[in-house]
């Protein structure tokens, strides 16, 4: 497999890998490093790539596992700091700012979800993968995926409602 044909196979899902990595690792730099590392791993195993039926699903699984490993090894160090770096903006009177704020809040809320739900929300609601593909990627049963997804969606919505009604009701 030559470099160019390899790139043709893997580049279409580079951004997806990056976004999943960023969802889990929080910082952009970490995610970029993870993406780089992953593609390098894929490149090293390029002979085996043709054996996989779905390279993209395989890459996503690898990304997920790699990020989990990173999180485990970094749990105590700098990743925590990034979480606290986030500053809640003052509620502005301007409607558009409030709107943007709400969207940022969603980001923050997803951050607070358990890792598995984070991954599932990312794969389903953002990347719009098929359920079969997600099951394949995460090595989970379809019902388990649905349950986790449903829980994540409900949590997000309730948290949003709670935030918006804060101080009103």
């Amino acid at each position: 497999m030559t470099q160019s044909s390899f790139l043709k196979v893997v580049l279409p899902f580079k951004d997806k890998v990056f976004r999943l990595a960023k969802r889990l690792l929080v910082s952009k730099e970490e995610a970029e490093d993870a993406t780089q590392e992953l593609f390098f791993k894929l490149w090293k195993n390029k002979e085996k790539i043709t054996d996989y039926k779905n390279v993209e699903a395989f890459a996503m699984t690898m990304t997920k596992n790699y990020c989990y490993d990173r999180l485990k090894s970094k749990q105590a160090s700098n990743l925590r700091l990034i979480h606290t770096n986030y500053k809640e903006k003052e509620t502005a009177l301007d409607k558009s700012i409030e709107y943007r704020d709400s969207i940022n809040q969603v980001h923050q809320l997803i951050e607070n979800l358990p890792e598995q739900q984070k991954v599932i929300i990312q794969l389903r609601d953002i990347e719009q993968y098929d359920f079969d593909e997600i099951c394949n990627m995460l090595n989970m049963k379809p019902t388990a995926v649905r349950v986790a997804l449903s829980r994540a969606r409900k949590t997000l919505r309730e948290a949003l409602i709670k935030k918006h009604n804060y101080g009103i009701r």
Binding site: R19, E32, T35, F39, F40
Partner: peptide
């Protein structure tokens, strides 16, 4: 948010 999140791209070039 979901729509916005999907637009994010990796700016770093991959080195093999």
């Amino acid at each position: 948010y979901f729509a916005k999140a999907k637009e994010e791209t990796c700016t770093k070039n991959i080195q093999l």
